[in-house]
């Protein structure tokens, strides 16, 4: 603070509070709807305070109710989405840290060719090669499999670049000392590089978990059977095929359940989240 300006500070607080209200309102409104009955939801305006069907709706959504709407239980959908998010996050970190290690600490034939191949993938998001990638998935028999849902999303340049940038900051003296002490490449990786990368790994994990959880186009393409849907895809199907019998209270509760895990990750691991976000975009 440079000078005292009570009015200005008050104004800043007020606009921040206003911003938070605008940002939070859609989520709050859906939460309110998730505690009410379908009849109440379909006769707006909805009172802006939670109703008394919280337990009923969430128990209904979690234990069987959603099966009546989309054909698959929420438990199964949450399980699928968790598998996808965790596999993408873990797989991407392992694959990228290995290739970054090779590219920074070794000199081998085709090194620069591989480097540019990885770099170029930045320019080829799934969205620009939808149909041919789908055909490759069909040819490989990966439709409706967890492998198909996760493997193609594991290779990307961003994580590799983050590790590369970090590895370049490790002083040569450290590598030299390790080698004089007789450490081979594997031992150096396990005992020095991995412990040093801990904070980067944690930050990346948070970002990649959210990335995996919020995927849309890819799961939409590679799943035909409802049992393999992620929760986001299942919800979008529920809404586009809505009819008079749709139990909206359960749809609302499912929407909240679908948002809860990644939001909890962001709020609880905020420090890693901010670090991961700011650094992986450099």
């Amino acid at each position: 603070m440079i000078e005292r300006r009570p009015v200005g500070t008050l104004l800043a607080h007020l606009s921040l509070v206003l911003g938070i209200v605008v940002v939070a309102f859609p989520i709050y409104y859906t939460f309110v709807a998730s505690t009410r009955t379908t009849v109440e939801i379909l006769s707006p305006p909805l009172p802006l305070l939670p109703g008394d069907h919280f337990l009923e709706n969430y128990a209904g959504a979690l234990f069987g109710g959603v099966g009546r709407i989309g054909g698959v239980d929420v438990m199964r959908l949450l399980f699928n989405t968790t598998v996808v998010a965790l596999a993408i996050a873990a797989g991407k970190i392992v694959i990228s840290i290995l290739s970054a290690y090779a590219i920074v600490f070794f000199r081998f034939p085709l090194r620069m060719v591989f480097f540019w191949m990885i770099f170029l993938t930045l320019m080829l998001p799934v969205e620009v090669r939808i149909l041919p990638t789908y055909k490759v998935m069909v040819d490989l028999g990966l439709i409706d499999t967890y492998t198909g849902l996760t493997l193609p999303l594991m290779a990307s340049a961003t994580a590799t670049f983050l590790f590369r940038q970090f590895f370049l900051t490790i002083p040569d003296e450290l590598v030299e000392a390790a080698r004089i002490d007789g450490a081979g490449p594997w031992r150096f990786f396990r005992d020095i590089l991995l412990p040093l990368s801990k904070t980067n790994i944690a930050a990346l994990f948070v970002i990649l978990f959210i990335y995996g959880w919020t995927q849309y186009l890819w799961p939409l393409l590679v799943t035909n059977r409802n049992e393999m849907n992620t929760i986001v895809i299942a919800l979008s199907k529920m809404i586009s095929f809505a009819d008079a019998a749709t139990e909206w209270n359960l749809v609302m509760a499912t929407t909240i359940l679908a948002m809860l895990p990644p939001v909890a990750v962001v709020v609880l691991m905020q420090k890693w989240f901010v670090k991961g976000l700011v650094e992986s975009e450099k």
Binding site: L16, W213, T214, V232, I233, P262, F273, L277
Partner: peptide, 11 residues
């Protein structure tokens, strides 16, 4: 202010 980042675009 930061939690909408975790909400999937479709949601």
């Amino acid at each position: 202010l930061i939690w909408p980042y975790a909400v999937a675009p479709a949601l």
